[in-house]
Amino acid sequence: MTITLHNISMKFNNTTAVNQLSVTIPKGELVSILGPSGCGKSTTLFMLAGLYEPTGGSILFNDKDVTKLTPEKRGIGMVFQNYALYPHMTVLQNIMFPLKMHKMKKAEAKKKAIEMAKLVEIDHLLDRKPSMLSGGQQQRVAIARALVREPEILLLDEPLSNLDARLRLTMREEIRRIQQALKITTVFVTHDQEEALSISDHVLLMNQGKLMQFDVPSNLYDEPNHRFVASFIGSPSMNYFDAEIVDGTLKTPFGYDLAIEAPNQSVQIAVRPENLYLSTSGLKEEVRLVERVGKDTLAVIGNDTAKKRLFLQKGETVEVGQAVYVQADKDTIRVFQKTGERIYIKE
């Protein structure tokens, strides 16, 4: 089912949690809503679920306006952050609950629930109470309960945040596997960019209630359309260099100029740590710190107010306090206005 958000807004008293958000989520895709805490991502999900009614705009499922429809009637499945399994019911009763609410016959409901339990691999736990399950198992029960009615939309609200690091990896692959198996349109809220970038078809990046970029994960990383996106995505974070545009020419700190169609202004050039490299020419900086990150060696250069990070190539060594020249290639630099908007360089 295609989900269309048209200019939706949500105001709580005086604060605007979601501001004029418009986006179309394609059918059968897994889309992550990503952003820092308080950016309105959960609010957006709750509006999709019908638990909040937007204060402005409209929500369409396959061209059908559902803005005013209550959650009971939207026919969606949802997994909550704390799973919200009914503590007094067994696993089987939990999974059967949505079917029971829709007046399905008991035998049939049981059959379907067991089928679903098999899909999420918890069919050996059917008689347990939620309190007797581990976090990962509770998660699976919650997914089974959300999917048992075969909804056309699955919503997940930070489903992995209560799990430990190892389990998180397994469960996110599980979610992807189940989503692919059922071809269900899935919206997944997370504050963990690695999670979002690794399993999503599209990522919806939000900040302060606004849509920043809706794109495929690789574009979010390589072609950020705003300085916020550039800074938010990627770890270690983006490096910034001050530069000037004078008469259609961008004067880079790396010693070369680029033709650019933009009025005269101060801009910032962004370069990813892996695209910055040591050279014999370019920008001169002092090495402040060298640290080993897994298989890579990360060097921190610059002064206190403007630190930059770069990964050393194999065989390269630098000493703390040493002066080095750093360089970045033309096709790897991204230019942003002082206000944050991207200036595109013509090829």
Binding site: A49, G50, L51, T70, P71, E72, I76, G77, M78, F80, Q81, N82, A84, Y86, P87, H88, F97, P98, M101, H102, R145, A146, R149
Partner: peptide, 28 residues
């Protein structure tokens, strides 16, 4: 917790069903 009521609404429980299946058992 509110999340139980939200979950029940998503599962299609009306006001009365939410009272019977969420409020009463958890209030036991």
């Amino acid at each position: 917790g509110d999340s139980y009521y939200n979950a029940a609404r998503i599962d299609g429980a009306n006001r009365w069903s939410r009272f019977i299946h969420v409020t009463l058992p958890q209030l036991a």
